[in-house]
Design a protein around this nucleic acid. Structure first.
Length: 226
DNA sequence: CCCTGATTCGC
DNA sequence: GCGAATCAGG
């Protein structure tokens, strides 16, 4: 497996985006974790925190902070305490660039009339989706930034790789290499690389590590030749 | 042990 | 240049 431009681009993006070498290798396919690290260094990508343990997946100490989220479905009967162990909401940064086929125009589902869905609320108020409903509840953000009120200043046109900071959502829109590839650019959910909306997509309610890969994951846009 | 990244070194 | 083996740390 050779390092094509696309694969290198993906590597860079994910590496700088905070993904672990394993995740990157996973995503690219056909390469080992070592290969990714080796390549990353050869590319001159600087070493990020070697001990990635301490920082990265930090869980905002959810103290008695009156975040007072949404009126989540109040299942009086059984709260179902299982689906969200969520000790460390592991940043499985594998944004499946949703099939743009479904572009419903429903911004934020603040009001879910009837949904006994099993979701868990993450810090910031985003809803973790259950492993099953992946695509359904939160419609992918429209490829075009039609949203009027962008809290972020420099996204008049689009948020490019250069515009990324820890203040804006780094969710990729489109595919690397495409002319209009950009990033979400919304204000981030504090403590996360994505905005609240995309946090809901990026962070699923604890999926068993073993069974999390098989079904859907579309790569970053790169070829998945395995 | 699990994980992480860093480095080495034969290819 | 590549990446498995190895090393080192949490």
């Amino acid at each position: 497996m050779s390092w094509t431009d696309e694969r290198i681009a993906t590597l860079k993006k994910m590496w700088e985006g905070g993904s672990t070498a394993s995740q990157i290798a996973d995503e690219l396919g056909g390469v080992s974790r070592n290969a990714v690290i080796g390549k990353a260094h050869r590319l001159g990508l600087k070493s990020r925190p070697s001990p990635v343990k301490a920082n990265e997946k930090k869980k905002p100490p959810a103290k008695a902070k009156p975040v007072a989220p949404k009126p989540v479905a109040k299942n009086s009967a059984k709260p179902v305490a299982k689906p969200a162990p969520t000790s460390p909401a592991k940043p499985v940064a594998s944004p499946q660039l949703a099939a743009d086929a479904t572009i419903p125009s429903q911004p934020l589902p603040n009001k879910t009339p009837d949904l006994p869905k099993i979701v868990s609320v993450g810090p910031g108020g985003f809803l973790r989706q259950g492993p099953g409903d992946q695509q359904a509840p939160i419609p992918p953000a429209p490829p075009r930034r039609l949203v009027p009120a962008k809290p972020s200043p420099e996204i008049a046109d689009k948020t490019s790789l250069l515009d990324l900071s820890d203040k804006v959502c780094r969710w990729p829109m489109g595919h690397p290499g495409e002319p209009d590839f950009h990033f979400c650019g919304e204000a981030v959910n504090p403590g996360f690389p994505y905005c609240v909306e995309h946090c809901g997509r990026a962070y699923q309610a604890q999926l068993p590590r073993g069974a999390r890969r098989p079904p859907p994951p579309l790569p970053f846009g790169g070829p998945r030749v395995r």
